[in-house]
């Protein structure tokens, strides 16, 4: 028990204690952003790595969470209509916005909205036995459609620019370092708790069933299970994680816009999971943090190079180390002990 949890405990101490003490506020905020992506990646690790559902549309759920939170933040600023509505000539708060003034509603929608949409989509799609590349393409199309929808509804969503200029969160000043440090700790804790819960699920009988569905969906039917239900539940869970991540991302980074949740960001997260190692949850989390950091480090120097580097890295991993960074680490450790 202790042995098994030692790596997790070590990482938890570094992330929760060492990082806030050692990193300057700007860097800490960046790390918080990567950890938000890691929460999405965790969901991808569950749905794709364990369940075999290649979802290229997690940005949709991330976006739903992000927009829910952004709407709430815009409404608690005081001073009437949100800024972007004024600029686009909206005179009265749209009815859709009204309930988001309530923080519980906004947070609930951030998680339950994505869960509900994934559950409906899953029920429709998995029952028809849509899978593999068809499922991937479908989710990608969803991401594209989401962007079009958001851009088209300028007065409701802020269009291409999305929403920004958030000032306070539940009564705290977002510009304060202490608020940002607190946010960081919240994000890290949420990630830790979700990681443990997901790991528990993966190690449970349900986890075995999920792997069985991934490797032999048709066979699983003849074991008396309904694979469509198993997949739907898993997909919905991963969507919920993405939604929560989106809601945390907005106060951390201070912006939400269609560019942050379209086809490309959705793909980037899948690439990150593949690079980290999709077959274990830790690989997914690690991949998101590493790729997030690499993107920042790289973009500071060559703005456009990142996309190419990312593509190259993906191909490299897929051909040379299909189990990603974690797979390489496991191989090295085994080579050392034998």
């Amino acid at each position: 028990m202790i042995r098994r949890n030692l790596p997790f405990a070590t990482v938890a101490v570094i992330v929760l204690v060492a990082a806030p003490l050692l990193l300057e506020p700007f860097r800490l905020s960046l790390l918080a952003k990567y950890l938000c992506y890691a929460i999405v990646a965790l969901g991808i690790g569950l749905a794709w790595g364990q369940g075999g559902m290649l979802t290229l549309g997690q940005g949709v759920f991330f976006g739903l969470g992000g927009y829910s939170m952004a709407m709430h933040l815009k409404l608690t600023e005081g001073g009437g209509l949100p800024d972007f509505m004024v600029w686009s000539g909206v005179e009265e708060l749209p009815a859709l916005w009204v309930p988001f003034a309530n923080p519980v509603f906004a947070l609930g929608m951030a998680v339950l909205g994505p869960v509900a949409i994934a559950a409906i989509l899953g029920t429709l799609v998995f029952r028809q036995r849509v899978r593999g590349a068809y499922f991937a393409i479908l989710t990608q199309a969803l991401a594209a459609a989401m962007v079009i929808l958001l851009v088209g509804q300028q007065g409701l969503t802020g269009g291409t620019n999305g929403m920004t200029n958030f000032f306070d969160l539940f009564g705290r000043d977002l510009a304060e370092d202490s608020t940002q440090r607190g946010l960081y700790l919240v994000v890290a804790s949420v990630l830790g708790v979700l990681y443990l819960a997901t790991r528990q699920l993966v190690n449970s009988r349900y986890g075995r069933l999920l792997v069985a569905v991934r490797d032999g969906e048709d066979r699983v039917r003849f074991l008396g299970y309904d694979p469509a239900l198993v997949k739907t539940v898993t997909f919905a869970a991963s969507a919920g994680m993405a939604g929560l991540a989106g809601a945390l991302f907005v106060p951390v980074v201070g912006i939400i816009s269609p560019a942050l949740l379209g086809v490309v960001p959705s793909l980037e997260l899948v690439v990150a999971v593949a690079v980290g190692g999709r077959h274990v949850l830790a690989g997914a989390v690690l991949g998101a943090v590493v790729m997030g950091y690499a993107q920042t480090a790289f973009s500071e120097q060559f703005a456009d190079g990142w996309l190419y580097l990312q593509g190259a890295l993906f191909i490299l991993v897929m051909t040379l180390a299909p189990k990603g960074i974690i797979g390489v680490a496991e191989r090295l450790r085994r080579a050392r002990t034998t």
């Binding site: 528990q200 699920l201 449970s204």
Partner: peptide, 9 residues
């Protein structure tokens, strides 16, 4: 039931 599978064997 599916939920009862969430525990470890």
């Amino acid at each position: 039931p599916l939920w009862s599978l969430a525990r470890r064997r």
